[in-house]
């Protein structure tokens, strides 16, 4: 069963957003046991089961049109959400090639790509975009290659150059950040970029992750899940626009928590880019309301236990301090104390 693409979703103002039963069942709950702490939870990005979010390397789901539209709104107001330093041009083409190859192969009814040598023809039927261009010649596309293709893809994309045994953020499209700013982080090294994350530095998570990524090979991408919570199904929770959404946290009440509070999961993928030897970091975001999530009994029990027992530093870092208790209290009656099976699949 493939997705039915919604055409009128919004991620701001009136928040017209919901998950179909199919989208709920394939939601990547990040809790594989009844508690949560950081780990280097990286695994090969190999195809998952049919209809799962990892069936293909780049998941295109029912929210595609609304997410692309929201990206355009952000960029119009804040063009610096897309940036690429001049030495990243070969990496830009790497990303365009990777996305076009996968999207056209995995979703042939929505995207098509034909190549005659370096003459490429791309047709995005969902957004009604059609271009012929010369691969490697930026002047033949209406925008820079990374800008062009990531406006047609769900999720944020960061490209890191590798030098001196480290990675530096030097290109990217970031319109759906969980309270971080690419504009602020441009040029930062891997550990500088992750500086604000609590606890993980003491656990040497970033030393190990960096060593692992430096040896990541072409054609062998990896992935991990990360999560936080968001009030309202808002994609652009950026520091640039903090005044617009920061106060939302105070709007959560015992009565509205099930529809206002959302678990936000990031499917993070890492690809070694072949021509540039740079690294692509993809952050594909999934939002689900607590009410939608609780339609799966196992997830209600597990999420209740995980949020109730979450480490105080993580509660604070993830910005949950003001409304975590409302979420826990709403979920509590759904947790009868019965055991949950391991893994995140619905029972």
């Amino acid at each position: 069963m493939s997705a039915v693409f919604k055409t009128d979703e919004t991620f701001r103002d009136d928040f017209k957003y919901s998950n179909s039963p199919r989208a709920i069942r394939r939601f990547p709950l990040p809790f594989v046991e009844d508690k949560y702490m950081y780990s280097v939870n990286i695994e090969p990005h190999v195809p998952g089961p049919k209809d799962s979010i990892t069936e293909f390397q780049f998941d295109v789901d029912e929210h595609y049109i609304g997410e692309c539209r929201d990206r355009e709104i952000v960029l119009k107001e804040d063009p610096l959400r897309y940036q690429a330093l001049p030495h990243m041009m070969s990496a830009q083409w790497d990303v365009l090639e990777l996305l076009m190859n996968h999207m056209s192969k995995d979703y042939p009814e929505q995207f098509s790509l034909s190549k005659q040598g370096n003459r490429w023809s791309w047709h995005n039927k969902l957004l009604n975009i059609k271009n012929e261009f010369t691969f490697g010649d930026p002047s033949t596309l209406p925008r820079e290659p990374l800008d062009y293709i990531t406006r047609q893809a769900q999720g944020d994309f960061v490209v890191m150059d590798q030098r001196d045994g480290d990675f530096y953020i030097e290109a990217g499209m970031v319109t759906t950040p969980a309270d971080w700013s690419m504009d602020f982080d441009m040029g930062m090294s891997f550990k500088e970029w992750h500086g604000p994350v609590p606890l993980a530095h003491e656990l040497n998570v970033f030393d190990r992750a960096l060593k692992f990524l430096l040896n990541l090979r072409i054609n062998e991408p990896v992935r991990r899940l990360n999560w936080t919570m968001t009030v309202n199904p808002r994609l652009d929770t950026s520091p640039e626009f903090y005044p617009r959404w920061g106060s939302d946290r105070a709007s959560v009440t015992a009565d509205n928590v099930a529809d206002k509070a959302h678990i936000r999961v990031e499917l993070q993928g890492l690809w070694r880019l072949p021509r540039s030897n740079a690294m692509l970091f993809g952050i594909r975001c999934y939002l689900i309301s607590i009410r939608e999530l609780a339609t799966i009994p196992k997830w209600a029990r597990r999420t209740h236990r995980t949020l109730r027992d979450l480490h105080p530093a993580l509660v604070d870092y993830k910005g949950l301090t003001r409304y975590r208790d409302h979420v826990v209290n709403w979920l509590a009656p759904l947790d009868d104390g019965s055991p949950t099976t391991s893994g995140n699949a619905p029972e």
Partner: peptide, 13 residues
């Protein structure tokens, strides 16, 4: 053969 690996890359800056 295995996929290429670059441990001797040019510095882009």
């Amino acid at each position: 053969i295995a996929h290429p690996v670059n441990l001797f890359q040019l510095d882009k800056l």
